[in-house]
């Protein structure tokens, strides 16, 4: 059994997303392992970003269940029980379970602790790098400032909490090598730095699952290598599972433990990078075959599968 099957953090079941007549994601099921870097790959228009938007609450799935267990395991009977109660999230014997398809976007980030970045970088360009990282710690700081009331009056331990938040932001800036640019507006940074800053900002929300939408897009080979190291460190040192969409196969094959391949909204392969690399369906989807050859190729694949 693979690690994502024995200790899943997120279990996606029968996820379907329709936009009018268009089926963007069709009956997709997969799991994200708690200690894995999971890659979601597929040709353009395969529905990868739609899956992301469903996981992070920007879309409400038409059908399907997305169960996330922050602690413990999302055991099937517990998830079934919670689904029956109609609640968004609840405690069970095996841990806290969150049904992401029922939660609004900000609650998924705040309670279920799923953070994300965007394909087209969405930093607060007019705010400084440091401010960007402090906005990410909004909910914790809001509590510390007594929901603003105590903060305005200057009562309570807000100052100390803010200092701790700044220290956390600074440690992340140190990690991504942007410490000397802490007071510069985020919009002034070069592209690669903005990508790293967006990851750091997402990490400042203390996520249990980090979703990255094409983190290596537009990076040069050296920056790609740095990104690989950063993502490994996020998984190893911060106990955060990573789910990423990526086209850069050098990144995918290098760092991921588990790869899920989508084509036209359906899953065509799911396994370790080695398995995916040799999967004829994936090769067909990526390299493409003539329309009339499709059946032929599929028959061949079936034959090969039966033989093995």
């Amino acid at each position: 059994m693979s690690s994502w099957q024995t200790d899943p953090l997120l279990v996606v079941e029968h996820l379907t997303m329709r936009f009018g007549g268009l089926v963007a994601v069709n009956n997709l099921s997969f799991s994200v392992g708690r200690t894995d870097i999971t890659a979601l790959i597929g040709p353009n228009g395969a529905g990868k970003t739609t899956v992301f938007n469903c996981v992070t609450g920007f879309y409400k799935p038409t059908e399907g269940r997305l169960a996330l267990a922050r602690q413990g395991i999302a055991a099937a009977p517990d998830v079934e029980h919670l689904t029956g109660t109609g609640a968004r999230h609840g405690k069970s014997n095996s841990g806290n379970i969150y049904l992401l398809e029922r939660m609004p976007g900000h609650e998924i980030a705040d309670k279920a602790r799923v953070a994300r970045t965007f394909q087209n970088i969405r930093l607060f360009t007019g705010m400084t790098v440091l401010e960007n990282l402090l906005v990410a710690q909004h909910n914790a700081l809001m509590k510390a400032s007594g929901y603003t009331v105590l903060g305005v009056l200057g009562i309570g331990g807000y100052k100390a909490k803010e200092k701790a938040a700044v220290a956390k932001a600074i440690s992340w800036l140190d990690k991504i090598g942007l410490l000397d640019r802490a007071d510069d507006p985020a919009g002034d940074l070069p592209y690669g730095d903005q990508r790293r800053l967006e990851i750091a900002r997402a990490m400042c929300t203390d996520p249990i699952l980090l979703c990255l939408d094409e983190p290596a897009a537009g990076l040069n080979p050296r920056e790609s290598l740095e990104l690989n190291a950063l993502l490994r460190s996020i998984r190893n040192d911060h106990n955060t599972a990573v789910l990423l969409i990526e086209h850069d196969m050098s990144v995918v094959m290098e760092i991921s433990d588990h790869v899920v391949v989508l084509d036209y909204g359906t899953k065509i392969a799911d396994g370790t990078p080695q398995e995916i690399r040799n999967d004829p369906r994936v090769i067909a989807a990526y390299l493409g075959v003539e329309d009339e050859e499709v059946e032929e190729v599929e028959a061949e694949i079936d034959m090969a599968e039966k033989a093995s």
Binding site: T56, G57, F58, G105, H106, E107, I108, A109, D110, A115, R116, F118, R122, L123, F124, T125, G126, M127, E131, L134, V135, A136, Q137, H138, N139, L141, M142, S145, T148, G151, V152, Y158, R201, A202, T205
Partner: peptide, 22 residues
């Protein structure tokens, strides 16, 4: 205070705000 920074973040990018749990 956090609320003021959230206001300005909202002006900058509302979608990013939601992704950060605001």
């Amino acid at each position: 205070l956090p609320v003021g920074r959230a206001w300005e973040a909202l002006r900058e990018d509302e979608i990013a705000c939601r992704s950060l749990g605001i």
